[in-house]
C-alpha cells in the first residue's frame, strides 16, 4: 500500500494554489487532510501527477462570526471545530456531529472543506451543511463565487466544484433563537462511515415548527435533503405520529447501495430511524429540554 510517484507542491497562499491548479489541470489533486485521498493513492485508485498541499495556507483556517454568519475556513480541522466556542455557542450541530467523525487522530488532520468537497456520500458534513442552509465559497481562476449547499452535491464524488476551483470557506447562517438541532448516526464502530445518519435543524414558534431541514448521509449517491419530510412537518406541532410519517417520507427519498453495512432495506430503514431520532432530539433541543 504505497502511493505512486507525484510532484509535490506546498503553496502558502491561495493565489499560488490556484495558479498551480491552473497550470496542472486534471493532472493535479488538492490534498487537504489527506485521509480520503492518501488511502486511495496507496491503493492506486488515485494516481495524480501533482499533489497540491494546501495545509500551509493559513488564510484557509479559522472560525469567525460576521454579520449573522459563521464563517469557517475550509482547512479548519474537525478537532478545531470541536474546540470552537463560537460553534458550541452559535451552531452546536457542527461540533456535535464532528465528534462522531472518524477518531481523534484523524480529526486532527481531516478538514471540513475536504469532507465537503470530496463528494463522498459517506462524509457527514454535507448533510450537516444542507441542514444548516450553508453556502460554500469557491475560489477559481476568475475569482470567487458563493454557492448554496442545497444543489452543490450532484452525485458520488461529484459536486459543483469545477476544475481549477478550491473551496475556501463555509458560511453558515447563525440559527435564530428558538432553533434546535439533532444529529443521529449509526455506525458499525469508531472510524467507520455511517450506515445511515441524519442531521436536523429546526425552528419553533411556540410549539409550532416554522422551519425544518432534514438531511441524510450515506443513503444515496450523495447527501440530500429530505424535502417532503420537512414539508410535512413545517407549520405543524410535531408529534410522534408526524415524526413517523416524516421518517417514511425521508425513507422514500433514499437510494442507498448495498455493502457490508447492510442491504438497501436495512439502510433505508435506518435512515428513517435516524431521522426519527434526530427530529426528536432537535425538538428537545429547541424546547431547551
Amino acid at each position: 500500500m504505497i502511493p505512486g510517484n507525484f510532484e509535490y507542491h506546498a503553496p502558502t497562499s491561495l493565489a499560488d494554489a490556484l495558479a498551480l491548479l491552473g497550470q496542472y489541470g486534471d493532472e493535479a489533486k488538492i490534498i487537504a487532510g489527506g485521509h480520503s485521498l492518501l488511502p486511495m493513492m496507496k491503493l492506486r485508485f488515485a494516481e495524480p501527477e501533482h499533489l497540491i498541499d494546501i495545509n500551509g495556507i493559513s488564510e484557509l483556517r479559522g472560525i469567525r462570526e460576521e454579520g449573522g454568519m459563521i464563517k469557517i475556513g475550509a482547512m479548519t480541522t474537525e478537532n478545531q471545530l470541536i474546540a470552537s466556542e463560537i460553534l458550541w455557542d452559535k451552531c452546536p450541530l457542527i461540533p456535535t456531529a464532528a465528534k462522531l467523525i472518524a477518531d481523534p487522530q484523524v480529526r486532527n488532520r481531516g478538514t471540513i472543506g475536504g469532507d465537503i468537497a470530496h463528494g463522498d456520500p459517506g462524509n457527514d458534513h454535507p448533510a450537516i451543511m444542507l441542514a444548516l442552509g450553508a453556502s460554500f465559497v469557491l475560489a477559481g481562476p476568475d475569482g470567487e463565487r458563493t454557492v448554496p449547499a442545497d444543489g452543490f452535491f450532484l452525485g458520488t464524488y461529484y459536486t459543483q466544484l469545477e476544475e481549477g476551483e478550491i473551496m475556501t470557506e463555509i458560511q453558515v447562517p447563525v440559527p435564530p433563537a428558538g432553533s434546535g438541532y439533532g444529529f443521529s448516526k449509526l455506525k458499525r464502530k469508531t472510524g467507520d462511515f455511517a450506515t445511515a445518519a441524519a442531521a436536523v435543524q429546526l425552528q419553533l414558534n411556540g410549539d409550532s415548527c416554522t422551519q425544518i431541514n432534514i438531511a441524510l448521509t450515506n443513503v444515496g449517491p450523495c447527501s440530500f435533503k429530505a424535502s417532503d419530510a420537512a414539508a410535512h412537518l413545517t407549520g405543524k406541532v410535531i408529534d410522534d405520529a408526524l415524526i413517523s410519517e416524516a421518517a417514511e417520507k425521508a425513507m422514500a427519498d433514499c437510494d442507498p447501495s448495498e455493502d457490508l453495512r447492510g442491504n438497501i432495506e436495512y439502510k433505508t430503514s435506518m435512515a428513517g430511524e435516524m431521522v426519527r431520532r434526530a427530529i426528536r432530539s432537535a425538538l428537545s433541543n429547541a424546547k431547551g429540554e
Binding site: G34, H35, L38, D53, N79, Q105, V106, N108
Partner: peptide, 24 residues
Amino acid sequence: SHCGVCTVDLNGASLKSCTVLAVQ
C-alpha cells in the same frame, strides 16, 4: 489509518503517520 499503531505527535497533535507524507 484505522489501527493507530503508527501514532506520533506532530506539532502538539496526535496523528497517524501512515497517512501523512514525510514532506508534510
